[in-house]
Design a protein around this nucleic acid. Structure first.
Lengths: 136, 136
DNA sequence: GTTCTTGCAAAATATTTGCAAGACG
DNA sequence: CGTCTTGCAAATATTTTGCAAGAAC
């Protein structure tokens, strides 16, 4: 996978430490991360406004994507254009509240009602992850 | 389908005009509605706090369910326990921004990774609805 | 009459915008 | 140096909480 700096260059975005850091943290994580989780793992201390704007820019450029579980739980993960993976489902664990991209769960082919066209789909699966289901 | 008043009684909830009105408006709609859309269609004028609490109560009692598209677009629709229908996908139209429950799109059976257990799934399909795709 | 719900005020939280200073290329 | 990005302040929006008055049963 490409390096953060390189990715920014490919999209003609300025290589700022905030953007670079966000991408680096998300790349090194095994689960999707929330704004505060990303902040904790960054060295620099950035203004919240800057965070919002950086996320917005990265999402618009399809470098990361936003996952919203129910309401108010917003997490970010690398976008397919960076990982070279296909559209995938997201798994939310009711216990540890972590969100993971399920790369191996293929998105089902659906038959929509007549006249409807599909551009995108989002599948969120809720349950217990492997770690949390062992504990019970 | 049962009447709003009756539904409230079945869940041991007091029959207040706010709750009754919310259920009635949602029942008579063909698409999922947002808080403000529901407010517009109600006679009485209720405090926003009351609205939030009413939605919370109705969702907890599985009378309605909440659908969140991307972030910040929250809509409500009748729950399966009231409609007697199965789990279904939701369709969001990028053009008219309406959300519809696709009762005929069966939720796919998925094979999760080992150790993962499923309790719930939410499938949101985005695209153009039949009305909006005709116009283009 | 007891319990639950409402409305109001206020707090907590989340998000957006304008603008001047600063960094990138 | 021109353009884009940041940080700060402030505006806007969203959601939650406490409490007293009111409605439901």
């Amino acid at each position: 996978m490409r390096q953060p700096i390189e990715i920014l260059g490919l999209h003609n975005l300025k290589r700022t430490s905030c953007r670079e850091g966000i991408i680096r943290v998300i790349m090194s994580a095994s689960t999707a991360l929330s704004e505060s989780e990303i902040r904790e793992r960054l060295e620099g201390n950035y203004d919240r406004t800057t965070f919002y704007r950086s996320f917005k820019t990265l999402v618009e450029n399809k470098i990361i994507h936003k996952i919203v579980v129910d309401n108010q739980l917003v997490k970010y993960a690398l976008d397919n254009s960076v990982t070279h993976k296909h559209e995938h489902a997201h798994f939310y664990c009711n216990e540890c509240e972590r969100v993971q991209c399920l790369d191996d769960v293929v998105m089902p082919a659906l038959k929509l009602p007549t006249g409807y066209t599909l551009t995108e789909m989002e599948l969120i699966i809720k349950g217990l992850c492997n770690q949390c289901s062992c504990k019970n």
